[in-house]
């Protein structure tokens, strides 16, 4: 991200944006209120629930607590992970397993799972739980989350 005063350039989902915001504004506010990208959700505001998870250069980040001035690379949100015609393997697995119930936390769950599978392509149950237990789902979809992650992992490995 480049910045001059409060004028900042931010690359989100492959597109360059210019915003006039304070550098300590949380990235989530910039995405939702300034850019109209509403896939990332506000949940707790203190990184404790994961609903706001996005990627920065592929790394999962809680956007509710990262000041936009600290953004160190390209941001990807759920809107940029796949397309309706070419879903990311995790998105496809989420549909296959009908993971979502109310759905509020699911964009964060999917973004966390996608980042996790990039570095751990063949995870066991414990690794999945360790990777995703910080993404809370009050509907209790955790069993389906685990199965969907396994399905996505297999697809990404070409199995």
């Amino acid at each position: 991200m480049n910045e001059t005063g409060n004028h900042m350039q931010l690359k989100v989902n492959g597109k360059e944006h210019e915003v006039e915001v304070e550098e300590d504004m949380p990235l989530l506010w910039v995405l939702r209120d300034e850019l109209g990208i509403t896939g990332p959700k506000y949940g707790c505001g203190i990184t404790a629930c994961g609903a706001c998870t996005v990627h920065i250069d592929g790394m999962a980040i809680r956007s509710c607590s990262m000041p936009v001035g600290d953004v160190f690379g390209e941001v990807t949100t759920i809107e940029g992970l796949g397309t309706p015609d070419a879903l990311h393997a995790v998105q496809a697995a989420w549909i296959e397993h009908q993971v979502a119930q109310c759905g509020y936390c699911q964009s964060g769950q999917i973004m966390a799972a996608a980042a996790f599978l990039e570095v751990n392509p063949d995870p066991d149950d414990e690794a999945i739980d360790r990777a995703l237990s910080a993404n809370l789902c009050r509907c209790g979809t955790y069993v389906r989350v685990r199965e969907a992650v396994k399905t996505a992992a297999a697809k990404l490995r070409g199995v």
Partner: peptide
């Protein structure tokens, strides 16, 4: 291997 500390710790 799981979730990076930096995901939450800024």
């Amino acid at each position: 291997e799981f979730v990076q500390c930096g995901t939450c710790h800024g």
